[in-house]
Nucleic acid binder design. Structure first.
Lengths: 154, 154
DNA sequence: GTGTTTGCAAAGTGTTTGCAATTTA
DNA sequence: TAAATTGCAAACACTTTGCAAACAC
């Protein structure tokens, strides 16, 4: 189940990150967990479960180092905490408001017909898409407003 | 410059929000500021500048009430704080990593060719797009990795 | 009057930081 | 041995909350 150190070791070296106990173990754990979206706290719990001795501070450090090394992706959904994605290249996500779950939107399900030009002197670094979903039954705040708006017509 | 209470009053009534001093004044201020992206703290400063006696707690309450009423939009960029948009219907944004600025992506500059089906039992509430940009000159973490990756080939 | 809203200060949440001890090269 | 990394606890930034006083209807 747990993969050999070889791949993790190679990855770390390729990124110029010293292959310390914690980084190696976390790299392997993340491989085992893949594909997955998780928070720092969740990775911390997974690590403890896997018997990896690591502090939460190091989890945060490592998560950021792996992310800027391109080993992980960062998902911004605005739920309060930061999610990390073991698939660093998927940028389209469903965010289920009802359950708090994050799911990948398969690449073929979403396509752009036109992408914006960046403003002068700027380049596009990446494009994030968050498709916010909820239970079909759950109430939608906007509906109430749309109704209320009727007698507020200018 | 400052618009009459009429519109703000109508808006609040239409939303079922009691037109209190603070809510009325903030609604008007937001109209004057439009179009704009701002944080709670920024609105607080603007309010003080405009002589509106209001506490930060009320700014937060009001911002959320206005947002769930559809009067404001919420922009999630992951910069630590929540941004609110006086244009509740624009969901495409540039986020300038270098300056921290948020700008609207004009609707005609971005178009989808295909939108995803929501998972069974779910409906799409809204779709957010964040186009992350930076100064053309600024360093890109990914480049270093791409180079490092060369001698890490499987 | 009655229920709602406000403002203050305190509490909370997720994340970052300072620094001594430990580990890696 | 020199430089990088770790772990702890304290510090942090932003946001929310509890509750008494003020306000709207």
């Amino acid at each position: 189940m747990t993969r050999p150190y070889a791949q993790a070791l190679r990855q770390l070296k390729a990124c110029g990150l010293r292959p310390t106990r914690q980084r190696l173990a976390l790299a392997r754990l993340l491989q085992d967990l893949h594909p997955r979206h998780l928070t720092a706290e969740e990775l911390y719990q997974e690590a403890r479960r896997a018997g990896i001795p690591v502090s939460l501070a190091t989890i945060y450090n490592t998560l950021h180092q792996f992310t800027s090394a391109g080993l992980l992706g960062e998902i911004v959904v605005g739920s309060g905490q930061t999610y990390f994605d073991t698939s660093p290249h998927s940028h389209w996500h469903f965010f289920d408001k009802t359950t708090g779950e994050i799911m990948d939107v398969p690449d073929h399900m979403l396509r752009f017909a036109r992408l914006p030009e960046p403003p002068a002197g700027k380049v596009i670094e990446r494009i994030d898409v968050v498709v916010r979903i909820r239970d079909a039954a759950a109430p939608d705040a906007r509906v109430r407003i749309a109704e209320a708006d009727v007698d507020a017509t200018d």
